[in-house]
Simulated scan of single mutants.
Amino acid sequence: MSILVNRATRIVVHGLGDEAGRRHATACREYGQGKRCVVAGVVAGGSVHRFDGIPVFESVAEARAATGANACMVHDDAERAGAAIDEAAEAGMPLIVCVGNGVPAASLARAADALRRGGTRLLGPGCAGVMTPDEVRIGNLPGEAPQRGRIGVILRSPALLAEVARQFRQHGLGASTVVSLSDPCRAGLSHLELLQLFEADAGTDAVLLAGPIDDESEAACAAWIATHLRKPLIGWIADSGPAASQRARLAACGAHMTHELASLGTLTASVVEPQWLPFD
């Protein structure tokens, strides 16, 4: 009843040898069922063998074979992140979340073939991550998480998460999954692909889009929303500048739009009646 991640997700942290990687691995372990979900780390060269009870391996392939991991968080610096994405894809990892920024385009191009061959989904690079509330988080999404519910959330700016969570709680709403996209979406999952995943998810009743869609995929998203999206779409997009025309186009497709973040909760509650499932 979510997309991309849930309580069955088993995570390898690539870059556990760095202080930032260890810090974010600890934060992921402390959220929800993270102690069960974060199962391994990868540090090239074998300089680290264990971190806070987590076994550390020299490669993603070794870590996956030993632990059954099905997701990889890449927290290496920009120069090493491209190779880490390629390595995780070659190991057949179904999901890669790259929170590192500034990955060279040439590195992403080299990893593209491995991603396609293995059917691997890449979120990022340069994203804040993904979470299914109360269950699992991959990445460094800031602030307090929303409660669990049935609204899929796509964030262009992770800074909006705390306000979305506050308004959801105020109106008795919750999120099925929260996904933060990089700006711009250069290589990984796009707005359109996430909309398609949420449309197919039985645990999602509506989708909240916070922030504009990439210019290059705006037309494709609008066409798909108009012809395929059966669930309500609620959007917060600025009412001025380049985003204004996009806001008008999405509204013409039937999306419920606002340019005031403070009205998101009221708008969402008026479109979607809160519903809950026995998740446990």
Rank of each mutant, 00 (worst) to 15 (best):
P94H: 03
V178C: 09
G149P: 01
D134C: 14
T177C: 06
E163H: 12
G139S: 07
P142A: 02
I151D: 09
S157M: 02
G118R: 03
V178I: 09
E163I: 11
Q147F: 14
G174T: 15
V153T: 06
L122M: 08
T132M: 10
R150T: 15
L141T: 11
G152D: 01
L141R: 11
G102D: 00
L108D: 01
R110I: 05
G174N: 04
A145C: 08
R137D: 11
Q170Y: 09
R150L: 13
E135P: 14
S107R: 12
E144C: 00
V103R: 00
R116E: 10
S176I: 00
L123I: 14
C98N: 05
T120F: 03
T120I: 05
P142G: 06
N101Y: 12
S157W: 02
P94M: 10
C127I: 07
D113P: 06
R169W: 14
P133A: 12
L123D: 04
E135Y: 09
H171I: 10
V130F: 01
A106P: 09
A175V: 13
A105H: 04
L122S: 01
E163W: 09
V136N: 14
G152P: 00
L95R: 02
P146K: 15
F168P: 15
G126D: 04
G118F: 08
G174R: 12
L155N: 02
Q170N: 04
L155C: 05
C127G: 08
R156G: 11
A145T: 11
A105Q: 03
L155G: 02
I151P: 07
P142V: 05
G124H: 04
T132A: 14
G174W: 06
